[in-house]
Amino acid sequence: MNSSPTLMIRLAPWLFTVALLLLWEFVCRAFNIPEFFLPTPMAVARATYEFWPAIYRNSWITLQTTLIGFGLAVGFGLFLGLAIGWSRTIYAGIYPLMIGFNAIPKVAVVPILVLWFGIGFMPAVLTAFLISFFPIVVNVATGLATIEPEMEDVLKALGASKLDIMRKVGIPRSLPYFFGSLKIAITLAFVGSVISESIASNYGIGNLMLQAQAQFQVPLIFAGLVALAVEGIVMYWVMALLEQRMTGWAQRSGFAQT
């Protein structure tokens, strides 16, 4: 009996996915829903097979765009997060700006990026970057801001400089926050690149879906959606794995184990 809960947990995602697909198929057939409104999973699978080369190529492009934007966001987000955590003045100066910037829907920024860089790769990368750095900054800064004052006192009384405290306590402490934020950031970056692709690009899954829509190939639109979902899950999973690897010490709660 001991292994059955873990087995259940391993199987659960697959069971739930299959159940959802069956339900979808069933609803489409039972209510006779036309294919141009909501295609069945079978039709979507067929479209995926038929258009596989295009889907594969464009998925790959979207993935690259997303990862480059995400990489920029990680670098910039870490830097800004550390800067904000380092100095109250920098915090006070930058935080309101960042909140304002974050409130702007990034769709609205794409036309400007197109104006500057032309249609295609650059706007998509930059949209992915712009939409995903915010959670990284906030999380890194939070990790630094929540150092226990007693810990700081212990170190200061030993003659520790601010840099010492940052290196010995601040940075290790903010790592779980940082790696946690990567899961959110990668998903957002993905959203960003697809948005930009569907507005202003000739490549990528976003563009593929737009063209499918223009040609009324509804199953292909859904095949694009599925490709996006699969890519999103894989990237999220990689980030979650990374988080577990790097900050195992921060995760020892047995909460919600079954």
Binding site: E148, E150, D153, V154, A157, K168, V169, R173, W249, A250
Partner: peptide
């Protein structure tokens, strides 16, 4: 400035969990 010849301990042990 901080005295540097002192050791301190508080009610919370403030150990680094990593």
């Amino acid at each position: 400035q901080p005295v540097k010849i002192a050791g301190m301990a508080f009610q919370a042990p403030t150990l680094l969990p990593w």
